[in-house]
């Protein structure tokens, strides 16, 4: 029993420190503010990052670096009330924070990965952004 508990603790600590490590720089204060807005308005009900979230709206992981989109495009969407998306009333400052949050999420990786490396064992090698 004690052995199991010790293993559980070690495993968790390793996951928290090593397993989920990623070379992306720390999020800026502005981005964290943006994330808070993202949470306060429950954007995740409709949107996803890395395919995780609700399905009524598109995945936002790489919206910022998409050749035809980017920060101005994102900001234009926020108060538009298009389709099912609610009509928000963000101030300019809030829009900037949300755009900054999406910019920093964009820097963490790619999704969807169209040219992932696959092999016969069923394994998929993903692309990392900051290696």
């Amino acid at each position: 029993m004690t052995a199991l508990v010790v293993m559980f603790v070690i495993y968790n600590v390793v996951v928290y420190t090593q397993g989920t490590s990623n070379n992306t720089p720390k999020m800026s204060e502005q981005a964290i503010k943006g994330e808070q807005l993202y949470q306060d308005n429950n954007c995740t009900a409709c949107h996803q990052f890395y395919g995780l979230g609700g399905y009524l709206g598109p995945d936002l992981t790489n919206t910022i670096s998409h050749p035809n989109k980017g920060a101005a495009y994102v900001k234009a969407f926020l108060n538009s009330g298009i389709k099912t998306m609610p009509k928000f009333n963000f101030t300019e400052e809030e829009k900037d924070a949300l755009a900054q949050f999406l910019t920093e999420v964009d820097q963490t990786g790619y999704y969807p990965i169209k040219d992932a490396e696959t092999d016969a064992s069923g394994w998929v090698g993903i692309k990392y952004k900051n290696q």
Partner: peptide, 23 residues
């Protein structure tokens, strides 16, 4: 329960060993 969670996050850029273990 303890180890299988990472199959939800295969596509998230965590360390490869977490993903192998989940598989």
């Amino acid at each position: 329960l303890m180890l299988g969670w990472a199959h939800h996050t295969y596509i998230v850029p965590t360390q490869p060993w977490v993903r192998y273990l989940a598989y």
